[in-house]
C-alpha cells in the first residue's frame, strides 16, 4: 500500500504519473531503447529532428515505428541548434512531422565543448515559439533569474541543467536549483548532468518536479537495468521530498530512550 498522496506531474494540461523523462539517443538499437523506456516507466521521450538519409532503405523501420506516438508523449528537441532561428525552424518541422503536436523541448547551445545553453538565443527562441502557440519545455542554465524570465515568457516547464549534457557529474549546484524552485510556478525539471541513480534522487529530494536524462541510461553498461534504477530513484527522491527529511545535526541524537536503563 502506498502512503503517498502525490499529484501527477502536469505539463501543458496533460497529467503524467511518471516524473522521469528519458531520451532516445546513444542506444545500441531501437529495441534496446524501447526496453529501457518500458523499464523506466517514463511516459515522455525526447527525439531529435534530422535530415532523412536519401540512400536509406525505405522499408527499414524508423524510431517512431518502434516507439509509438500513440502510446508515449514524443518530445522533439532542438539539440544541435546554436541559434534561435534554427531552433524555431526545427520546432516548426517537428510540429508538422507529428501532425500538429505542440510540445517541444527547446535547447539552444552556446559552444560545442560545454554544450552550455546560449541563454540570449534561448530567450529569443522561447518568445517566438510561445507566440506561435508551442508548449515549450526549455533547457537552460541554473541561473534563477533566467529561469524566472523563461517562465514569464510562457514556457510550460523550465529545465535547468544539473551539470553539462552527457557529463554525468550530478547536481553540481543544488543551491541554485533550490532558488529556481522557490520562485517557480511551472514544473522545474533537471535536464542534463545525471550520472547515476542517486543523482536523480538528489534532484527530486530538492523538490524538482521531474528529471530528464539520456546518457545516464543509454551509456550504462546495462541500460535497461539502469532505466529501472532511475525509475526507483526518481520515485524514492520524490517520496523523500514529500515525506520531509529530518534536520541535519552536528552531533548525535540517540534513537533509544535514556529513561529505563538498568545499568
Amino acid at each position: 500500500m502506498s502512503t503517498t498522496q502525490d499529484r501527477p506531474l502536469l505539463i501543458a494540461g496533460v497529467e503524467y504519473r511518471s516524473r522521469l523523462i528519458i531520451g532516445s539517443g546513444k542506444y545500441k538499437d531501437f529495441e534496446e531503447n524501447l526496453a529501457a523506456l518500458e523499464a523506466s516507466a517514463a511516459e515522455m521521450i525526447t527525439v531529435a529532428i534530422r535530415r532523412v538519409n536519401l540512400g536509406q532503405d525505405k522499408d527499414e523501420p524508423s524510431l517512431l515505428d518502434i516507439i509509438s506516438p500513440e502510446k508515449y508523449t514524443i518530445l522533439p528537441n532542438t539539440a544541435g541548434c546554436y541559434t534561435a532561428e534554427d531552433a524555431v525552424r526545427t520546432c516548426r518541422m517537428a510540429r508538422e512531422l507529428l501532425d500538429g503536436h505542440k510540445l517541444v523541448k527547446l535547447e539552444v547551445l552556446g559552444d560545442q565543448k560545454t554544450l552550455y545553453p546560449n541563454v540570449t538565443e534561448t530567450l529569443a527562441a522561447a518568445e517566438t515559439l510561445v507566440a506561435e502557440g508551442f508548449d515549450v519545455m526549455v533547457y537552460t542554465s541554473d541561473d534563477p533569474l533566467v529561469a524566472r524570465r523563461l517562465e514569464e515568457i510562457g514556457c510550460v516547464a523550465v529545465m535547468p541543467l544539473g551539470a553539462p549534457i552527457g557529463s554525468g557529474l550530478g547536481i553540481r549546484n543544488p543551491y541554485n536549483i533550490r532558488m529556481i524552485l522557490e520562485n517557480a510556478q511551472v514544473p522545474i525539471i533537471v535536464d542534463a548532468g545525471v550520472g547515476t541513480a542517486s543523482d536523480a534522487s538528489i534532484a527530486m529530494e530538492l523538490g524538482c518536479h521531474g528529471v530528464l536524462m539520456n546518457t545516464a541510461i543509454a551509456e550504462a553498461r546495462n541500460p535497461v537495468l539502469m532505466a529501472s534504477a532511475m525509475r526507483k530513484a526518481v520515485e524514492a527522491g520524490r517520496e523523500a521530498y514529500l515525506a520531509g527529511r529530518m534536520p541535519r545535526r552536528l552531533y548525535a541524537s540517540a534513537s533509544s530512550p535514556v529513561d529505563g536503563t538498568f545499568f
Binding site: G23, S24, G25, K26, Y27, F30, N33, T46, V47, A48, I49, R50, R51, V52, S62, L63, L64, I74, P76, N77, A79, M93, A94, L97, L98, I165, G166, M213, N214, T215, A218
Partner: peptide, 10 residues
C-alpha cells in the same frame, strides 16, 4: 528542399 524525420536524441 529539406526532408526530415525523428531520430534518436536526448
Amino acid at each position: 528542399i529539406e526532408i526530415v524525420q525523428a531520430i534518436g536524441g536526448g
